[in-house]
Design a protein around this nucleic acid. Structure first.
Lengths: 362, 362
DNA sequence: TTGAAAGCGATACCAG
DNA sequence: CTGGTATCGCTTTCAA
């Protein structure tokens, strides 16, 4: 439904001063109006105590009256650097990185740093395009999800000469500074948890995009640990599309049809697990008695579904905050470093098997 | 855990060309190297067919070799406008707006428009600060959540002279262009749904921040419709903090203690409802038989919890896409307009009462 | 098809 | 404490 609005903005006489096409006021406008030099106005803004109080006041009044907003394009061009921080994520859905961004951006705000956001949607071509685009704004730093980027992206980021903070994953070579954790270790922990609870026939289910390197690392950890424990190989049942409950349900049905013996399912994300559990319910399978289910992410609903979902909780707030800290530190000449942020395996009912079989069962 | 990394970037001989402090290449560097004027290089970039093919090729090669990234600060300063779109949201948590941003940013990308993100966290002072900050980058347009902004913010946005798209809410006066829906109507629909199912003692539960005007509109619609139906006044039980399952559980316990007669709960958001249902379970109340629960948002888990949650599904993707369209249209001289985007009441089991009492019961 | 020169709006350095 | 002036990197006439 579309309603066309008469484009009148006039509630009162102020509307005249809100004309759309008048050029935006500049430092010069203010200077003229107050009768000082551009330069003084600029200083009144950036170093107020170098300007006489009385003058400063008049300048502020003039700025107020004209609704002056500084032009940071000009500022950035002449100054040493901008206050932009480029933030590149691979997804915005399902809380995956939302709270990292939330924490990051509010922490940066305290340092008057502005976030410029880009979302690659796990597409490396788009990553290239977006990184170029962000660099073209001459940001003070770039924070980016992951450590596995196309070589050209790495080259571009390196040659930019600004601090690059890679978030979320630390398992591998890093450009500059990284803050995250080892996803392979997560996969191994998932396997161990299930094996300890007596599960023996593991499956990995969910969204697995070509370029979701982290998911592949977790899967690798899972498989490696399973081999180490001498149990059956991990069955994988995935689709290269975004995770969702519907996908989880579909894959659960597929999986149980082809591999009825499965007794534990590791989901790539909580939202997939939600659907998997719904699917299992439809099949008459009990969780956790017949089949254990665990996942990765600790979605806000994980503790509220039935049964509550065992999952991995990465400390997203911490990653966001530490990334902001690292950016500020690096800008001020600090050294690059890699920081591992702890995650937790939150054991809930979905893997709470009453009967623990002996470990030599498989 | 912190691991300090030796800051050597050298995997190979390329590292020399990746020195950090060499000034970034400019159009002039390219021009020099190719032996043409700055301006030719500029044209090769923006209007390739005005440059001889052979020359264009050599220019492209030079750009590749130097890893040239245009400086858009300079471009924006001299050109007519930038390719930045400012996006101001009130929250990034819990999928509330994530998929709007996701869709918006990928739609904008098709038009080579770059998102600059700001998150006010429902804080009007921060909103002011962030809007100023965004405007200082001379964006081509601004998209912002909501239509209720502090007067100063409205003034600033109006006087900026650029297209302003207000998203999510359309119930009230608008600055320029709006895309969203009527939240009061949502509240009314929630009331009607519950009343039709035979519920009579309604409560409104959840996060209710001072500046979440949309939530207040929904509550108002709920109350108004309840009055119209002649049933008991709506009991409200809220906290001025962000919504979460834990908050929902706590409020549910509070509510039932003070108002044991309540037979239906409307939650301000799905995540709160998740907690409310957990709380009710602890109290031994059955949903939907003893108490109906519905919410707003259609979180990805809403259909997966037990019982599946009746809720309102706003069409976030559509809002995101239409906002991008509107931005492009307005930039190209289109007229401002207000567009209502439909939402759906998704009836699930959490309000599925078997026994429907006669409507004159209350 | 190409080049020279004048801004864009701030900052920074150096005088006064 | 205040005011010139060069400068940042690019776009945009206007000539050649």
């Amino acid at each position: 439904m579309t309603i066309s609005t008469k484009a009148r903005d006039g509630d009162d006489d102020r509307s005249a001063s809100e004309r759309k096409d008048r050029p935006a006021p500049t430092l010069a406008s203010i200077a003229d109006r107050v009768g000082v030099s551009v330069n003084t106005v600029s200083r009144a803004l950036r170093a107020p105590n170098t300007v006489r109080v009385e003058l400063r006041k008049r300048i502020n009044v003039a700025m107020e009256e004209l609704n002056y907003v500084p032009n940071r394009l000009a500022g950035g061009l002449s100054g040493t650097r901008t206050d932009i921080v480029g933030v590149v994520v691979t997804s915005l859905y399902y809380s995956e990185f939302a709270s990292i961004i939330d924490t990051l951006q509010s922490s940066l705000l305290e340092h008057d740093l502005q976030v410029m956001l880009a979302n690659t949607r796990y597409n490396p071509d788009q990553e290239m395009k977006l990184v170029r685009s962000i660099l073209s704004w001459r940001p003070a730093a770039v924070a980016i999800i992951g450590i596995d980027h196309p070589p050209k992206v790495v080259e571009l980021l390196k040659s930019s000469g600004i601090p690059i903070i890679e978030m979320w994953d630390t398992s591998g070579p890093v450009i500059d500074t990284a803050i995250g954790f080892d996803h392979q270790a997560v996969g191994a922990a998932q396997a161990r948890h299930l094996i300890d609870r007596g599960y023996r026939k593991l499956a990995f289910v969910g969204s697995l995009r070509e370029n979701d390197r982290r998911a592949r690392k977790r899967l690798f950890g899972l498989e490696t640990e399973a081999v180490k424990a001498g149990i059956a190989p991990v069955v994988t049942c995935t689709e290269p599309i975004g995770g969702s409950p519907d996908l989880g349900e579909k894959l659960a049905l597929d999986l149980l049809q082809t591999h009825p013996g499965i007794d534990a399912i590791v989901c790539n994300s909580d939202v997939v697990a939600f659907g998997v559990m719904r699917g299992l319910r439809k099949l008459g399978k009990r969780v956790p008695e017949d089949i254990g289910v665990m996942a990765f992410g600790d979605n806000e609903a994980a503790a509220c579904i039935t049964p509550p979902l065992t999952t991995i909780r990465p400390d997203r707030e911490r990653i966001g905050r530490l990334t902001a800290d690292a950016i500020v530190a690096r800008i001020n000449g600090g050294e690059p470093q890699t920081t591992i942020v702890d995650w937790k395996l939150v054991a809930r009912q979905s893997t709470q098997r009453d009967t623990v079989e002996p470990t030599d069962a498989g």
